[in-house]
Design a protein around this nucleic acid. Structure first.
Lengths: 226, 226
DNA sequence: TATCATATGAAAATTCTGCTGATAGAAGAC
DNA sequence: GTCTTCTATCAGCAGAATTTTCATATGATA
């Protein structure tokens, strides 16, 4: 379950991101209009949270763009403005729900769940890829019905790969995921190597073939025959 | 985005050059008054950085000359002298900004960016030449919307050609660009041939016609019908 | 034709990337 | 507090990619 959060205020962005991450979602974030569009051009999301009071370009424009891109993502508007105008316009141009600041994080979560339920996504159900079975709600992984004990980083890594399966992910995007916004241009990717090695090892121990293919100079690709 | 750096101290010249090159600019340099004027007579630059404490002839004279040449380049003064006199004189005769030594390279970059923004150049945006699309910030190249994987040297070569399109460039100037000051009088141009071949090959593979015309005994011309 | 400049092919030298093992520090359990 | 587990960091290595070098072929010019 992959969520994109578009929010310019760093503190709020961080805390929402962290909370949703805890709840078992794969969360990416963008701080402005441009960066958000860059992401939506490349990746598919199940749900997009938009703060419509963004610096360059209104959040409403993003929604229009997404609809033009035929994105399948559900859209929830976040806004400080409590005017019903914005709400109506937002829902009018295709947003699915509206949440006024300040809001409760639990409230946000239930809205997301409701949205996902409405769209008949399988919510927080298990993710199954061949012999691998992930239950996001419990943060547990099974291979051939045997539980694999993964550390937090290993689990995050695996979930990130699987939500981006058959798509090349750069080491930078991995770092951004596992270590947050502040590690945008990290020069040192050693820790990725280490956690990746541990993950591979644990999966292999349970008889899981190496799905994670290295692409030299670029990143990795979790390859599954579709 | 093409920058001329006029600075006599070799170490400083080298480090500034290297930094700006990393930031995606095409950088040329001159160590004194005469060499600088030779370059500005022939080439157009978007921005010129002048150290006004040069050996033969003050940097201030260069600025006057440039103004007489009706150069379109923005001018940023670099100086160890902190006297406001110099600063005022410099800005008076047409410089656009002033930076006192020692300065931070990031500071220099942001001054350049600000200058470019003020002049409504499109900064580090994509460079588009027919079917070729270059994004300097990412050092990526697309042909007919397909990414072309270029090595560092190939990329530098292409960018150099394109910033000098429809103008004959000598092999020496290519060498100076790709291998720095110290390779002024290189007798051996073999590596240019090699990298040029590889570049041509990769572009051709993506269906890009050969823009790079050889001029016997002189150099090359990246030809685009204007 | 003779000479030099450019192009091409292949291979050596160099640099860069990713992987591994070991280890120390950080966080958490007891 | 101690012990355990997880995470971060480092040095060294092997293989891959890039860059340089060299030999040779082709082409241009006088």
């Amino acid at each position: 379950m992959k969520i994109l959060l578009i929010e310019d205020e760093p503190d709020l962005r961080k805390s929402i991101k962290q909370y949703l991450h805890q709840e078992g979602y794969v969360v990416e974030s963008a701080s402005d209009f441009i960066k958000a569009l860059e992401k939506t051009m490349v990746y598919e999301y199940d749900c997009i949270l938009v703060d419509i009071t963004l610096p360059n370009g209104s959040g409403l424009d993003i929604i229009k763009q997404l609809k033009q891109q035929h994105s399948k993502a559900g859209i929830i508007i976040i806004s400080a403005k409590n005017s019903s105008d914005d709400k109506i316009i937002g829902l009018d141009i295709g947003a699915d729900d509206y949440l006024a600041k300040p809001f409760n994080l639990a409230e946000l979560n239930s809205r997301i769940k409701a949205l996902i339920r409405r769209r008949n996504f399988d919510g927080n159900k298990a993710i199954v890829v061949n012999e691998i079975n992930i239950i996001p709600e419990e943060r547990t992984v099974k291979v051939n019905n045997e539980q694999v004990m993964l550390t937090a980083k290993e689990y995050d890594l695996l979930l990130f790969f699987i939500t981006n399966k058959n798509r090349v992910v750069s080491k930078n995007s991995i770092a951004e995921h596992l270590w947050g916004d502040d590690s945008d241009q990290m020069d040192n990717h050693d820790f990725i190597y280490v956690h990746l090695r541990n993950l591979r090892k644990k999966l292999a121990e349970k008889g899981c073939r190496d799905y994670i293919q290295m692409i030299y100079g670029i990143g990795y690709n979790f390859k599954v025959n579709v």
